[in-house]
């Protein structure tokens, strides 16, 4: 993290050098497409350039730029959700949910397999292999699930904001997030928790 307290020189080349890669990676986690991610990073830096007088020196430059980037990402997804219907299940492809719930629950809605505790999350987050598994599982989500999950969890949007951006009802929003979490949980359990290599001696 950069700790510059102000944009003294407001040199755009410097922002690009110092923050471009991080902004790009943040955008990639939402959009999963490098051309779109490059575009939003460019728009972000241009917007930052125009608004540089508004930058309050008490926030870090990275935080300020990330805030602008979040808005640009949301704008892009909002626009896309209005062009193609987000609710269209036919576009989901594999890995989505109606089948997943059918595998996980019996007809009475009980879990088919026993649920196992994962242990201490903080210890888990220390492990690089956990993040490899998380990345892999997240990348496996359908675009619909990953878009909703990313806006909610990575950008930290409220459920109201999320529904508005995706142009869907609030209950639908909750269901999509539920499916995303269920898919991630299932994937993590098979790729990380069932893997005996995952921990050092314990």
């Amino acid at each position: 993290m950069h700790n510059d307290s102000r944009l003294h020189a407001a040199d755009p080349d410097e922002w690009l050098e110092a923050h471009g890669d991080a902004l790009f990676r943040f955008a990639m986690k939402h959009l999963r497409d490098s051309a779109s991610a490059e575009d939003v990073v460019q728009e972000t830096l241009l917007a930052a350039l125009q608004a540089r007088d508004e930058f309050a020196g008490n926030a870090s430059q990275r935080t300020w730029l990330t805030g602008i980037l979040k808005r640009k990402i949301a704008d892009l997804i909002r626009k896309r959700s209005r062009e193609a219907t987000f609710e269209n299940d036919a576009q989901d492809g594999h890995g989505d949910s109606t089948e997943l719930t059918a595998c996980l629950f019996d007809q009475r809605g009980e879990w088919v397999v026993p649920q196992r505790a994962w242990g201490d999350p903080d210890a888990m987050f220390e492990q690089n292999r956990f993040w490899e598994a998380f990345t892999c599982c997240y990348d496996g989500l359908s675009p619909k699930l990953s878009t909703a999950f990313s806006l909610r969890e990575f950008s930290g949007l409220s459920i109201e904001e999320l529904c508005e951006i995706l142009n869907i009802s609030s209950s639908n929003c909750s269901v999509i997030l539920y499916r995303a979490r269920l898919a991630l949980k299932t994937c993590l359990e098979s790729s990380w928790f069932d893997n005996p290599m995952r921990r050092g001696p314990s």
Binding site: P114, T135, R181
Partner: peptide, 20 residues
């Protein structure tokens, strides 16, 4: 089962915040 799932979902939520 569900209390376990409760903790696991919360862990996924925390993981999402960190992953970003």
């Amino acid at each position: 089962a569900c209390p376990v799932v409760h903790r696991n979902f919360k862990a996924i939520h925390q993981a999402g915040l960190k992953y970003a």
